[in-house]
Structures are given as C-alpha cells and as structure tokens.
Computed example of a mutant assay.
Amino acid sequence: MYPVRVSVTSEDDLTPTAIALGNFDGVHLGHQQVIQSLFSENFSGKCNSLHPSVVTFSPHPQEFFTGQRRALLTPLQEKEQYLHGLGIEQLILLPFNDEIAQLSPIDFVEQILVQRLGSRAISVGFDFGFGRGRSGTAEDLRAIAASFGIPVTIVPPYCLDNERVSSSAIREALSQGDVQRGRRLLGRPYCLTGIVQPGQQLGRELGFPTANLLLPLDKFLPHWGVYSVWVEGPMLSQPQVGVLNIGIRPTLGTPTLTAEVHLLDWQGDLYHQPLTLHLWEFLRPEQRFASLTDLKQQIARDCDRTRQLLTSLV
C-alpha cells in the first residue's frame, strides 16, 4: 500500500544504511526530529549513497517482557505511511527475542548495527537505551560506534510550550479525550483507520446511519465518547464531516465495543471500504439516555456542533 520497504529478515535489508533507531510509536514531532537528522547537513554527502532506514523492534520490548499486548498509536501500516512522508526508504523490524534481549551493548552494535545493517550513520533520541537490561545509553552508543567509524547523532528532547513531546504524553492526552493536545504533540490529528463492516442498522433506525469500523486489534483507542471528525476514503471524492462514537452504546443495550461514524453530508454504500477518521474535537463522554428520543436529540446537537467546527476545514 505504501512504498516504504519493510524488512523482517537480514536477507531483505538494503545496505549500507543511515538509520534512525528506536520504537517510534506515534512518529510524533519528537520522533521526526530523530528521523530528519539523517538528512541534515551533518550527514550530507555521506548519506547520499546510503539507504535511509528506520530500525525498530517487533514486538515492542515492553510487550515481550510483560507478555501483554501493547496497543499502538501507529500500527505497522500507519507507521509505513508516515515514514514514507519523511523520506524513509525502508523500515527494518528487528525480532525482539531472548537472543537480542541478552546482547550486551557492544555485541548489539557489532552484530546488529555493523554486521547485519551495514550502518554508516546513526541517529537516536537522547533517552535511547539498548543492550541487556537497557544498560547502554545514547552516549555509550556514540562511543562504541565511534570505534567502527560510525557517527551517531543524539537528538535532544523536543518540547512544545514547555512540555516534552513523547508517546506517553500523547497516550495520556488521548486517554482523557484531549485530542487537541494529542494533535499538537503529534503534529497532526490522531487517526483511526479501519474497514467498514455491516452492523445492526441501529443508527439508520434513529435517522443517523453509521459506518461501523473494524479497527486493527493493536490500535490505541482514545477515551470512549463522541468526537467531531473529518473522514477520508477511496469512495469519497473529498473529505467529509462526521460524528464518531467510540464505546458500547449504553442506551441501545449493545455492550460490544464499537467505533461508528455518521457522515453528515454523504449517503452511499461504504461496506468493506477503508475509511480514515481524523479526530478533531471531543464532544462529550458516552452516556445513557432516558429514551431514544433524548438520544436522537443529542445526536442532532452533536451533528450541529460538528458542522460548526469542521465545515470550514474540509
């Protein structure tokens, strides 16, 4: 779908490389500083003959050690899309297993970065840790790599309005429904991309037909509730304004978690088509209404508010 090349085995790697090394979940503004340093004047000339690459781990080390699935801000397809926009040629997924987890910092540099990846230039964030027990620091990486003639750029913290941009800060914001803060830290609206699946037609019965999205299982979901969104998809000739509900629809008695969007000014068949929802504003938490009439009136108010917010943006 996207022209970033994904490599999962050493035979697939394009070498030699200039690499940005880290987890990069979110590809937020701080991550972008690490990636863009590969194209800075410090590496000019040297990197012209190298393959600009992002190197990350699969699964996430935290998931490996805890045994618990980790929801991601940017599942693989999303990450590919954003990396392509930043000029990255390939995404190398290192299998995080017992073998890699037990490598010392020196062995990690020699066996993975030098021998496997043919690294000639490396960029990392200031808080990068590597090797057994994360015993290696970014400065350790610079010192070890220097013995192989590899320059390492250590990118300092990236801050906006005195707040450090980080994946954890974005997760915190989204967990609170604060998509405006999340948008500021990401440098773009937080997105949900999924395939439209047949639903129970309950929205249509209320007069507000919805598209029910099947989202990636590992996608991080924001606080349950109602959001103003703008919607893109191959069946839509232009972005559309929509109202998204994430939750279990307590008034309708359907305890299954759903993500469903009502497009304000579009009608048609979207079944089995991909849609991308750009979350713009959190309107209200999910709530139980005394009657379907009350629910319909609130949905109408949600649509009016969304139209006011987004009509000028799409």
Rank of each mutant, 00 (worst) to 15 (best):
R171E: 00
A173L: 09
A173H: 07
L174S: 03
G177S: 09
D178K: 05
V179F: 15
L185I: 06
R188T: 02
C191P: 01
C191T: 10
G194L: 01
Q197M: 12
P198N: 04
G199S: 07
Q200G: 01
G203H: 08
R204I: 05
E205K: 15
G207T: 11
F208N: 11
F208V: 12
F208Q: 11
P209M: 13
L213F: 06
L214G: 07
L215M: 03
L215D: 03
L215H: 01
L217Q: 15
D218S: 09
K219S: 07
K219R: 15
F220D: 03
P222C: 14
P222V: 07
G225N: 02
V226R: 06
V226T: 03
S228D: 14
V229D: 05
E232W: 00
G233R: 06
P234R: 09
S237V: 02
S237K: 15
S237T: 14
Q238P: 06
Q238F: 14
Q240C: 15
G242P: 14
G242I: 09
G242V: 08
G242F: 12
G242C: 14
V243P: 12
N245F: 04
N245H: 15
N245C: 10
I246P: 03
G247L: 11
I248W: 06
R249V: 00
R249Y: 05
P250R: 05
P250G: 12
P250M: 02
T251V: 11
L252T: 06
L252A: 12
T254V: 08
P255C: 06
